[in-house]
Every structure is written in structure tokens, then in C-alpha cells.
Computed example of a mutant assay.
Amino acid sequence: MPSVRRPGLTRRARPEGAVRNARLGIGGILSQALLLVLALLFVFPFYWIVTGAFKVQNVAVAIPPEWFPLDPTLDNFRALFANPVWRWGFNSFFVAGSEMALVCLTASMAGYALAKRSFPGRQAIFILFVAAMALPKQVILVPLFTMLADFGWIDTYRGLILPAVGWPFGVFLMKQFAQTLPSELIEAAKIDGCSEARLFVRIVLPLLKPALGALAIFTFINAWNDYFSQLILTRSTPMMTLPLGIATLQGEYTTPYGVLMAGAALASLPMIAIFLLFQKAFTQGITMGAVKG
């Protein structure tokens, strides 16, 4: 017997699908509009700093503001580079780059050991690292300063770099990522006669590359913006970092907003470059940490 078509059901199904697609389309448009508004809100301060770097003093503080410099000038950058900015920039790069490399190395080794090695007190050590994350830096700054003063490390690169090497957050992050590594692969490498050092360098580190990218970004930005510690641990102008040196340009009675904005724009460029350089690994690290199994 030939099948009997029931056009009524077909006519009802089509409007329902169209309504559902329309709802999804409206939701997508609204979400894109919301993301655009949020992106503009986050980008606007950077835009205001960059444009303010090309304004003279009276225009930079004018009300209503001048949204775009109609008469741009380079006087702010000339005044900025009249100071030892290159020296400050080198200090910031050296301190932040050294901290980034050392933290990634020590945190990856500690995280791998805490995740894949069994030894007495492992859980207690991990709890200690987690508890250390809850301590604000200001709490430990006084004993840290006393210890560094006894070592003679005040106003030195060692005093600025080495205290941050054992960053508890870095160990916690690498330990969480190392737990996702397949234990079978590590055991197979040990059965094949791979030494512990070779196992870590040839197998573990390549698998931790996404996590290392994320940790590198976090560490560099944290070290670059560590104004408070650098203020306490430095004494001389040649040892100042770029954010600290730019802050000293503020006068006692006047504030050169254009010069400060020029310095802030210059100081933000390395952080943007580091993020763009490690963006792919950073994204992989975030997604890898969000998916289990």
C-alpha cells in the first residue's frame, strides 16, 4: 500500500525550525554585540594612554577631553628619553626574562615530581605550596628584606630575581597539568632504560609545552609589573626598572601627564609582545586544563 503523505505535519515543522534558527541568530548577534562592547571597554584605556602620549600638557588635562590629538607632538617622548630609559628597560627585560626562565624550569620540575612521583610528605608539600599562595606579598616582605640585606643582595639583580623563583602559583599550575600526562608513557620510557634527566627533558617537557606557555606569560607580566617589591629592593637610579623609573618622573607639585602616558605606552609594549608570542601555547594550556580525560 503506498504511503500517505501528511502535509500538515510538514507545514508545522518548518515554522518551528525557522523560529529556532531565528532565536539562535538573535542570540548570536546579542552575544557578539556584548563581546564587542566589552572589548572596547578594555581597549579604551590603552587607546587613551597612546593618544595622550602625543598631547601637550594643557590638552592632556583639558575638559572636555580631546579624544584624538589634533596637533600631535613628540615632546613627551623627548622628555622621557632624557632620562636613563634604556637602562631601566634593560633592567626590566633582564629581571622579567630571568624570572620567567627560572620559574618555568623550577616549577615544571617541582610540578612533575609532585604529580608523578611518590615520596613521603608529597601531599604535605603540595598543601604547603597551596597555603603559600594565600599569603600576600606584603606579609613576607619584611623578613624577605631582612634576609636579603644580610646576604648583601639589596639593590642587586640577585635580590630582584631569586626571591621569585619558587613561585607557589607556578608549582601549583604545573602540578595540575602534569597530572594529565599519561603515566604509561613515562613507565614505558623507564623500562626502555631512559634516565630521569633524559625522561624529563625529552618526554615530560615537550608534553608540558602548553602549560609552560601559559606560565611564561603569567610570570613575565607578574615580574614586569612587580612595582612594590622593586620599590623596596632597589636604591639607586641605575638599578630601577622601567615602571619604577617612570613613576619617579612625577613631580612634587606638577604631574607631566603626557610624559607619564608616553612611558606607560612604552612599558606596555613588551607585555603585548610576550602575549602575542606565546598566545598559541597559552590558549592550548587553558583548554588543556579545562578538559579532563
Rank of each mutant, 00 (worst) to 15 (best):
A178L: 09
A178M: 02
Q179C: 01
T180I: 00
L181Q: 13
E184D: 06
I186R: 13
A188W: 12
A189I: 08
A189M: 04
K190H: 08
C194I: 11
C194V: 11
S195F: 08
E196I: 13
R198I: 03
R198C: 05
L199V: 10
L199E: 14
F200V: 08
F200P: 13
K209L: 15
P210M: 10
P210R: 07
P210F: 06
G213W: 13
A214L: 15
L215F: 13
I217F: 13
I217T: 14
I217H: 13
F218A: 09
T219G: 14
F220I: 12
F220H: 13
F220E: 10
I221V: 15
N222A: 15
W224D: 01
F228A: 06
S229D: 12
Q230A: 15
R235Y: 05
T237V: 12
L242Y: 00
L244P: 05
L244C: 03
G245V: 01
I246M: 00
T248V: 01
T248G: 06
L249Q: 08
G251L: 06
E252I: 09
G258I: 09
G258C: 09
V259Q: 09
L260M: 11
L260C: 01
A262Q: 09
G263V: 04
G263C: 07
A264C: 03
A264Q: 08
A264S: 14
A265F: 06
S268Q: 02
L269K: 00
